[in-house]
Amino acid sequence: NSLAEAKVLANRELDKYGVSDYYKNLINNAKTVEGVKALIDEILA
């Protein structure tokens, strides 16, 4: 998966839960796919 794909999928996942734009910005600023995954795990914990 590319970083861009990971960000799109992460933001879709956040949308399902009604997560605020603050967290979407964190996702969009992530530098690695692993970073995106770690943020998602933390946000949805």
Results as ranks from 00 to 15, higher is better:
A4M: 09
L3K: 00
T32P: 00
V19M: 14
A38S: 10
L26S: 03
S2N: 12
A4D: 13
Y22H: 12
D41I: 14
R12C: 04
A30F: 02
I43E: 00
E13A: 10
D21S: 07
E34G: 06
L26E: 05
L9R: 15
K37I: 11
Y23R: 02
Y22A: 09
A38T: 10
D21V: 04
G18R: 06
Y22L: 08
N11R: 09
D41M: 14
V36A: 01
K7N: 01
V19H: 05
V19K: 08
A4C: 08
K24Y: 12
N25Q: 11
K37W: 15
S2Q: 11
G35M: 14
A45V: 08
A6H: 06
A30I: 05
A38W: 09
V33D: 02
A4R: 09
I27W: 00
N1F: 10
V19R: 05
N25G: 11
D41A: 12
L39Y: 03
G18F: 09
E13F: 15
N1T: 14
L44K: 10
E42I: 12
Y23P: 01
R12H: 12
K31V: 13
K24L: 06
G35D: 15
D15I: 06
A45K: 15
Y17C: 04
L14M: 06
D21C: 08
L44Q: 05
R12G: 11
N1K: 10
K37Y: 13
V36P: 00
I40L: 15
A38C: 11
A45Q: 12
E42C: 15
L14N: 02
K16C: 05
L9C: 14
K7V: 03
K24G: 03
K7G: 01
V36N: 00
D41P: 03
G35E: 15
K16G: 07
K31W: 06
A45M: 12
A10D: 02
K7Q: 09
A6I: 11
V8N: 15
V8Y: 11
I40W: 06
T32E: 02
V36D: 00
E42R: 14
V8S: 14
Y17L: 13
V19F: 15
A4H: 11
I27H: 00
A4L: 07
N11F: 14
A45D: 07
K7P: 02
G18M: 07
A38R: 12
D41Q: 14
